[in-house]
Simulated assay, not measured.
Amino acid sequence: MNFVATERAKQGTGASRRLRNSGNTPGIVYGGGVESLAIETNHNDLWHALKKESFHSSILDMEINGQTTKVVLRDVQFHPFKQLVLHVDFQRVDATTKLHLNVPLHFEGADKSPAVTQDKCVVTPLVTTLPVVCVPSDLPEFITVDLSNLQKGSSFTLKQVQLPKNVVAHIRGTQLNPTLVSIVPPADEMVAPVEAAPAAPAKKGKK
């Protein structure tokens, strides 16, 4: 994806506020062994770009002062209730340095699986992105996850995902093989709670 940014001369809270009032968004580009550069981008163009999945998970070509720099989106700050981007961060990338980036997961085939067609289970993805590590040339725009073989009573975990070549999942914490999909049987098969036994009738007292 290509987009244009402009070097930002003035910085500070007041300058950023005036910049937003003029229809632009302040930002910064850092990394790549080069000094950080304050930039500004057209707010409307940025707002529409942020709605595209690929803008968050692809190598972007940013044009600054007539030169193109390859970057990835690192952080976006939104206004608490207005449709307004307050600030945006980009990181420069090069061909040999590995990236740590969240890649979207596209789940397909669940409606054709035995769990759904035969056993009427409800299949729900538990995550939408997967953190991966790879060089820029191997970065996938998304990862397709095939759910067509799901079975009732089974589980679907990270190890069952076919990752693209040279792409490694980057999982932190103790759970190295997390569950990615919930498979729930039909409601009428769920175990009903045991009803409490009726209370014994109270004994009549002596006259």
Results as ranks from 00 to 15, higher is better:
102 N>K: 13
182 S>H: 12
137 S>G: 08
79 H>R: 07
103 V>A: 06
54 S>I: 09
18 R>H: 09
58 S>Y: 03
89 D>H: 04
9 A>I: 14
20 R>V: 13
10 K>V: 08
163 L>Q: 05
105 L>P: 10
65 N>R: 15
120 K>P: 00
175 Q>H: 10
191 V>A: 13
66 G>S: 13
180 L>K: 04
112 K>E: 02
138 D>P: 02
159 K>C: 11
175 Q>G: 00
66 G>F: 14
11 Q>F: 02
159 K>Q: 14
15 A>H: 06
35 E>R: 06
142 F>P: 00
137 S>H: 13
95 A>W: 05
59 I>V: 15
75 D>N: 14
144 T>W: 00
24 N>I: 00
97 T>I: 00
42 N>E: 11
137 S>Q: 15
5 A>F: 08
206 K>M: 13
175 Q>Y: 07
155 S>H: 09
140 P>E: 02
112 K>R: 01
22 S>G: 05
197 A>K: 12
206 K>Y: 12
36 S>A: 06
79 H>D: 12
163 L>E: 01
136 P>K: 06
21 N>Y: 09
142 F>M: 08
137 S>K: 15
104 P>A: 11
103 V>N: 05
96 T>V: 14
94 D>L: 00
114 P>I: 03
143 I>H: 06
71 V>S: 03
99 L>G: 00
180 L>G: 05
163 L>Y: 02
62 M>S: 02
4 V>K: 15
131 P>F: 10
128 T>G: 10
185 P>I: 08
113 S>G: 04
43 H>R: 02
59 I>M: 03
49 A>Y: 14
139 L>P: 01
177 N>D: 15
76 V>W: 10
199 A>T: 10
177 N>M: 05
146 D>T: 06
32 G>F: 02
156 F>N: 03
65 N>M: 14
195 E>L: 06
27 G>M: 05
113 S>Q: 05
82 K>L: 11
49 A>Q: 15
6 T>R: 11
1 M>I: 10
166 N>I: 01
106 H>Q: 09
162 Q>N: 14
205 G>C: 07
62 M>K: 02
130 L>C: 11
59 I>C: 09
106 H>C: 03
45 D>A: 10
154 S>W: 05
194 V>K: 13
106 H>K: 12
67 Q>E: 14
120 K>A: 15
203 K>M: 13
61 D>L: 09
182 S>V: 09
83 Q>P: 01
86 L>R: 13
182 S>E: 15
139 L>V: 01
72 V>S: 05
199 A>I: 08
148 S>H: 04
9 A>Y: 02
123 V>R: 01
82 K>N: 10
149 N>Y: 04
145 V>L: 04
186 P>G: 12
92 R>P: 03
125 P>Y: 08
23 G>Y: 04
205 G>F: 11
106 H>T: 05
82 K>W: 06
98 K>A: 11
154 S>N: 09
170 H>Y: 11
192 A>V: 13
53 E>A: 11
90 F>A: 03
83 Q>H: 13
15 A>D: 10
27 G>H: 05
109 G>I: 04
68 T>N: 10
197 A>R: 09
36 S>C: 00
33 G>F: 02
89 D>P: 03
152 K>H: 01
53 E>L: 11
202 A>F: 05
71 V>N: 04
169 A>K: 05
15 A>G: 07
11 Q>W: 00
157 T>V: 11
41 T>R: 04
178 P>V: 11
104 P>Q: 10
189 E>H: 07
131 P>H: 06
75 D>V: 07
191 V>T: 14
